[in-house]
Computed example of a mutant assay.
Amino acid sequence: MKTYTLTIFEKNGEKLLDHSFEALSDEEAKSRGSQLLQEHGSEEKTHRCTSPEGKLLLFHT
């Protein structure tokens, strides 16, 4: 398993969430990241989900 990071920001740059989670693949991490965004009601907030290699899986400004 690899550790991925989901970060959610306000428009002013304030970090609202910095959450690490484990997934077996980038696709699983993308799905889990989307699920976490929904749980926090943050789909429309600025966010990013990155892989341990620095690959950007989800991004919204």
Rank of each mutant, 00 (worst) to 15 (best):
M1L: 07
K2E: 12
K2W: 02
K2I: 00
K2D: 11
K2C: 04
K2Y: 08
T3P: 01
Y4V: 05
Y4Q: 03
Y4G: 07
Y4M: 05
T5Q: 14
T5M: 04
T5K: 13
L6N: 08
L6G: 07
L6R: 04
F9I: 01
F9W: 15
F9Q: 11
E10P: 07
E10A: 05
E10Q: 12
E10R: 12
K11M: 04
K11Q: 03
N12H: 05
N12Q: 10
N12F: 01
G13W: 00
G13E: 04
E14M: 13
E14Q: 11
E14K: 15
E14T: 14
E14F: 15
K15Q: 10
K15T: 12
L16Y: 01
L16E: 03
L16D: 01
L16Q: 10
D18W: 07
D18H: 12
H19I: 00
S20W: 02
S20Q: 15
S20A: 15
S20F: 03
F21A: 09
F21G: 06
E22Y: 01
E22T: 08
E22L: 05
E22V: 04
E22N: 11
E22K: 12
A23P: 11
A23N: 05
L24V: 10
S25K: 12
S25F: 02
S25A: 07
S25D: 12
D26I: 14
E28Y: 04
E28R: 14
E28N: 14
E28K: 14
A29N: 09
A29C: 13
A29D: 04
A29P: 06
A29V: 10
K30S: 14
K30V: 04
K30P: 02
S31A: 14
S31Y: 06
S31Q: 11
S31P: 00
S31C: 06
R32W: 02
G33N: 07
S34I: 02
S34T: 12
S34K: 10
Q35T: 06
Q35K: 06
L36V: 06
L36K: 05
L36R: 03
L37S: 10
L37I: 05
Q38I: 04
Q38D: 13
Q38N: 11
E39W: 01
H40D: 05
H40E: 15
H40F: 06
G41Y: 03
G41P: 10
G41V: 03
S42G: 14
E43T: 09
E43W: 00
E44F: 06
E44W: 02
T46R: 13
H47D: 10
H47I: 02
R48K: 12
R48D: 11
R48P: 00
R48H: 09
R48L: 13
C49E: 09
C49P: 08
C49D: 08
C49V: 15
C49H: 05
T50L: 05
S51R: 12
S51L: 07
P52W: 04
P52S: 14
P52Y: 09
E53H: 10
G54V: 03
G54R: 02
G54S: 04
K55E: 15
K55T: 13
L56C: 11
L57Q: 02
L57S: 07
L57F: 09
L57A: 08
L58T: 03
F59E: 13
F59N: 10
F59D: 12
F59L: 09
H60N: 13
H60R: 08
T61W: 01
T61V: 06
